[in-house]
């Protein structure tokens, strides 16, 4: 996943988020433990087996998007945020 933030003053920030690192077989249990407090906070009932469905869905979603951004936010004041899977 890549996040691109373009501030209204012209500053730009590119953040690569290696989702594969969190979603492989070795790191998934650890990632799930770290995620648990946030799931409780937002009242999301996610089991570990459901969590393990996400990597496959994300891989398929990335193929499906084929370069199109997952999210594109343009603010009135000129700020811009784009997220690619």
């Amino acid at each position: 996943m890549r996040v691109y933030i373009h501030e209204k003053d012209g500053a730009a920030l590119r953040i690569p988020l290696p989702v594969g690192l969190f979603f492989n077989r070795l790191t998934a249990p650890l990632a799930f433990i770290l995620l648990k407090p946030y799931l409780r906070k937002y009242n999301v009932s996610l089991t570990f087996s459901q969590f393990c469905l996400l990597p496959r869905a994300l891989r398929k979603a990335k193929r499906c998007l084929n370069g199109t951004p997952l999210a594109d936010i343009a603010e009135k004041d000129g700020g811009h945020i784009t997220v690619w899977l």
Binding site: Y42, V44, S45, L46, Q50, F51, L53, L54, A57, L58, K60, A61, C64, L65, T68, P69, L70, A71, D72, I73, A74, E75, K76
Partner: peptide, 27 residues
């Protein structure tokens, strides 16, 4: 209304996975 534009392209495979998990659209 304030001029912000948001475009989200959600592949249906992701939507289905989210529904299976129990997420709703605002989440």
């Amino acid at each position: 209304a304030n001029g912000d534009r948001i475009r989200i392209n959600l592949p249906m495979v992701l939507v289905r996975a989210a529904l299976e998990i129990g997420l709703s659209l605002p989440q």
